Simulated scan of single mutants.
Amino acid sequence: MEQKNGSSFMGFILLGFSDRPQLELVLFVVLLIFYLFTLLGNATIIALAQLDPHLQTPMYFFLSNLSFLDLCYTTSTVPQLLVHLRTADKSISYGGCVVQLFVALGLGCTECLLLGVMAFDRYAAICKPLQYTVIMHPRLCALMASASWFIGFGNSSLQTVLLFLLSLCGRNKIDHFFCEVPALLKLACVDTTVYESEVFFVGVVILLIPVALIIFSYGQIVRAVLRIKSSAGQRKAFGTCGSHITVVSLFYGTAIYAYLQPSNNYSQDQVKFVSLFYTIVTPTVSPVIYTLRNKDVTGAMKKVLCRGQDSR
C-alpha cells in the first residue's frame, strides 16, 4: 500500500453504533450476555465431546469443530466491540484491522464449508446406515475438516492481500463495528469493480456450493425418512437433522444477505445489525439448538455432572 495512504500509519476508526449513543449501553449489556453464553455453550460441547466416549463419533467430531470455530469467530470481533461501546476511543490499528479481517473472514468461510460437510455426514448416517462407519472413516472426517479450514483461510489470505493492496487515500473511518470486506471497500478511492466481481464469485463458490450440497443431502434424507414406517424413527431422524437445518438457515441467510447482493440495495445500518447475527447470535444459539432436543448430549451432561458430584 502506498505511503500516501494515511490509514497505514494512523490505523482506522470503527464507527460502529456511535451514531446511536442511546443504544450503546443496551447493546453492551445484551452482547456481553450473549458472549458469555457463547463461551459457556460452545466450551461445554467441546468438553462433552472429549469426555464422553459415546459422543466420539463423526457427528460430534464435526460439531466440536464447529463449536471451537464459533468460539474463535465471536472472540475475533465481540470483545473489541464491547470495549468500543463503553469508551470514546473507537480506533483499531492498521495491523489489528488486517489481522481481524483475515481471522474473521477465514473463520466465516470455514464455517460455510463445515456446515456443508456436516450435512453430508447426516446424509451418510440416514441414507447409508449400514455403510456409515466405512464411509465416515476417522481419516476421511479429519481430511474433510482440515480441508474446510485450509480452504477457508486460503481464501481469506487471498482476499485480505488483494483488499489491502487497494489505495484508500488516507480515509480511515469504517462505518462498521469490525473490519469486514464490504465496509473496507467503501474506503477505496479507486475503481473496485474487478475486486467486487472477484469477491462475488468467491462468495458464490464458498456460500452457494455448500448450500447446494446441503439441499441435495437433505432432499435425499427426506426421501429416506419418509420410507421409515415407524413414526418414532421418523421423529428421531428429523430431530437429528432439524438442529443442523436451523443453524444453517440462520448463518447462511444472514451471510448471503450481507455478501451476495448489490451494496446499493441496503443501508449500512442494516448491514451492521445483520452482521450481529452471524458474529454473535448464531454462535450463541447454536449450542442451545444442538443440545436442546439431543438426548445424547443431555445424557452426557448428566453423566459428567453426576461424576463431578460423586468425586466430592
Rank of each mutant, 00 (worst) to 15 (best):
K295G: 09
T192Y: 01
R223C: 01
G170R: 00
V103Y: 00
G154D: 12
Y218F: 15
K302F: 02
V247F: 10
F178W: 11
S8K: 11
G170H: 07
L162N: 00
L165G: 00
P262A: 05
T87R: 14
N294F: 03
Y278H: 13
F277Q: 12
F37G: 04
G16M: 06
V247C: 09
A119V: 00
L85V: 07
E24P: 03
L55F: 00
A183E: 12
S167Y: 04
V222H: 04
S91A: 11
C189T: 08
V29F: 15
F251W: 06
F62I: 01
S249W: 06
A237G: 01
S263I: 03
K4F: 12
Q270C: 04
G41T: 00
V248H: 00
Q268C: 05
L260P: 08
L48E: 04
F216Y: 15
Y252T: 03
S8N: 12
S217R: 02
P58E: 05
T160V: 05
T75Y: 02
F273C: 15
F120G: 14
S156F: 02
L305V: 07
L166N: 13
R86S: 04
L260H: 08
T74Q: 05
L82Y: 07
P138I: 05
V202S: 10
F120D: 10
L101F: 03
K4M: 11
F177Q: 01
R312P: 03
N264D: 15
L31M: 14
H244N: 10
G233V: 01
C306R: 13
S263A: 13
G299A: 14
D19Q: 14
L51R: 07
D121Y: 14
F153N: 05
F12R: 02
C112Q: 10
V134W: 11
V204P: 01
F28P: 01
C179K: 02
D296K: 09
N155Q: 09
G219P: 08
S7A: 14
F120K: 09
I209T: 13
C97A: 15
L39K: 13
S286T: 14
M136V: 04
V297H: 09
K229T: 12
L36I: 12
S76R: 02
Y73T: 06
M1W: 03
L163F: 04
L162F: 08
G170Q: 03
V304F: 14
I245N: 01
S217T: 06
Y35L: 07
K302A: 13
A224Q: 13
V134L: 07
Y290Q: 11
R171N: 15
V181S: 01
V297W: 12
L250Q: 07
N264R: 06
F201G: 15
G170C: 11
G96Y: 06
L25P: 04
H176I: 01
Q80K: 10
T44H: 03
T193D: 09
Y132F: 15
C241H: 04
I280W: 09
T75H: 13
Q56T: 03
D70M: 08
P182Y: 12
F178G: 08
A147K: 06
A142L: 15
C97T: 13
H176W: 11
S67P: 03
P21W: 06
L130S: 13
Q220K: 15
P21G: 03
C112W: 04
G152R: 04
S230G: 03
V190N: 10
E2R: 08
I245H: 01
N155V: 14
M301I: 06
Y132H: 13
C169V: 06
L31W: 00
